[in-house]
């Protein structure tokens, strides 16, 4: 992203370059969908094999914390969308400010998530940390394993997204990122952010709302 020229080596014109970047990002996000898809398949099989126990296990999660976190992420997506709109219009300060707000909301999400983990840890629900577990059945244990892997992987993606947005926010605000010529940079980063949001939109009902 150090490019300041608007057309780089293999491309003939800016339009071609922009299309390639968009297509590349969509394809990359497709691979991310497949990555989480494996986890969703695990969740589906778990529910098929042990429907009643999965529902019981899901009831032990904090529905309302999850709901608040969903709202936080949805709002951050709105901010990113607004930032991208600013970037396309060449409004540097607006771009930086919205991106920064979105990244902050991402951090809020992570903070809430950590708080939620600590609650679950105290309740003896969170495996993998050596503390004695108070899960009632083996399947609940397996469900919590899946919960930890899925939300952990999502949190990792979000963390990457936060760093990405912060870097772009600073570069945009300081003018090192030429706008609107290089608006493609916030646009593609925004696509990534929205996808992380979409994944949470599915994780939330599958993990928290199994009834």
């Amino acid at each position: 992203m150090a490019e300041t020229r608007s057309v780089a080596e293999p491309y003939r014109d800016a339009r071609q370059q922009r299309d390639a970047a968009m297509l590349g990002m969509y394809v990359f996000l497709g691979s991310e969908i497949m990555l989480f898809g494996g986890l969703f398949a695990v969740a589906a099989v778990m529910r098929l094999l042990h429907p009643a126990e999965v529902v019981e296990a899901s009831k032990a999660l904090h529905v309302w914390i999850g709901a608040v976190n969903t709202a936080v992420l949805l709002t951050s997506s709105l901010f990113v969308a607004l930032a991208v709109d600013c970037a396309k219009g060449g409004r540097r300060r607006g771009t930086g400010a919205w991106l920064f707000s979105a990244a902050s909301l991402g951090a809020v999400f992570l903070a809430i998530k950590v708080y939620e983990y600590s609650l679950e840890h105290a309740e003896g629900l969170l495996p993998g940390l050596g503390a004695p577990l108070k899960v009632s059945t083996p399947v609940q244990r397996a469900f919590m394993d899946l919960y930890l892997v899925a939300t952990g992987l999502h949190a990792l993606h979000l963390l990457i997204g936060i760093l990405l947005l912060l870097v772009i926010a600073i570069r945009a605000a300081s003018g090192r990122l030429l706008l609107p010529e290089r608006a493609i940079v916030p646009v593609t980063a925004g696509l990534y952010w929205h996808l992380v949001d979409v994944i949470w939109v599915f994780l939330y009902p599958i993990l928290y709302l199994a009834r």
Partner: peptide
């Protein structure tokens, strides 16, 4: 990516005991 996530699950099981494929956990 599907292979990647599957390998993550194996590593998680070996490192942290997160037994998603463990028959003892159903």
């Amino acid at each position: 990516p599907v292979l990647s996530i599957t390998l993550v699950l194996i590593a998680a099981e070996r490192l942290f005991g997160l037994g998603i494929f463990d028959p003892k956990l159903g």
